[in-house]
Design a protein around this nucleic acid. Structure first.
Ligand code: ZN
Ligand code: ZN
Ligand code: ZN
Ligand code: ZN
Lengths: 144, 144
DNA sequence: CTTGACCTTAGAGTCAACTCTAAGCTTATA
DNA sequence: TATAAGCTTAGAGTTGACTCTAAGGTCAAG
């Protein structure tokens, strides 16, 4: 049985974060001492590791809550539910990547066009491009 | 001279957003009516368009504030300052893309491994992977 | 028996970029 | 002249995932 500071050291999550996750229904200390101190058993630790893994992949805490509710009763849930969640997350990630790649392209074009030198910026092609808005066409897909 | 609602219609930014940008020092109505109504002239409108363009590229409002301070006095600033800002933003964007691509890979691996069918999730390889944490190695670079 | 480290809670603060509300003027139209 | 639409301000609310604070209880060591 681990105290919160021990679990914190072991998991790399701060005690604050562990309490925060508890408040949001993700994890729990299955026992408390008489004084109210949290004590985590092995199953608790495994659950925390599950949360950590899912979080590292990029799932939101809401996603993780759903994954956890599947985890505690796998018989009542299907593989399809799991792939739906995963696919949905993948779609989000893909959309963000596209948005960022569009920004990336525009920024590279801007950098290519500017001399980057120490002279003053009265002739700066980046400033001109921002003023004229003509890169906006290339950057339009960046909009949320 | 445009009233705020007219500039809002023309620019696609809400009147709320225009006031918000003003509060944060990005834009200004160079004149006010006797009753205090904002009136935007052509230079104001061009400044708003500059902000919009920069925002669409992905610059933060802080970045934009810096770009604007260069814009109003180009003689006192160098091309290098402009490229520094742009390069810094590009580095940020590249870092995020890498992070997301790592998530993307992990999610694709997970999706490949799961049957996605309607049977129950007791055998689900995604749940197993999350439990065992063995994809964490692939996903480790996702950490902030 | 007193430090000092650790634990508890509720609740506030952080970041970014809006978004909205309330309460009250102003202006245009009927 | 009355109604509605539009403007003003200060300030609060939103989202997500923490992060920290205050005020106090607990526990081991010296
Ligand atoms: Zn130059
Ligand atoms: Zn330049
Ligand atoms: Zn299956
Ligand atoms: Zn499965």
């Amino acid at each position: 049985m681990l105290k919160i500071s021990e679990l914190s050291a072991q998991s790399g999550l701060s005690a604050h974060t562990l309490r925060f996750y508890e408040k949001h229904g993700l994890i729990n200390a299955s026992t408390r001492s008489e004084a109210g101190y949290r004590f985590y058993n092995e199953a608790d630790v495994r659950r925390v590791e599950f949360v950590k893994t899912a979080r590292n992949i990029g799932f939101s805490l809401d996603d993780i809550a759903q994954l956890l509710s599947i985890r505690v009763d796998k018989k009542s849930h299907s593989c399809q539910e799991v792939t739906d969640l995963t696919q949905h997350k993948l779609n989000e990630v893909n959309a963000k990547i596209e948005e960022l790649q569009s920004m990336q392209q525009t920024l590279e074009i801007l950098l290519d066009s500017c001399c980057g030198g120490p002279e003053n910026a009265t002739h700066c092609s980046i400033m001109e491009a921002l003023d004229e808005g003509d890169i906006r066409d290339k950057a339009r897909s960046n909009k949320k």
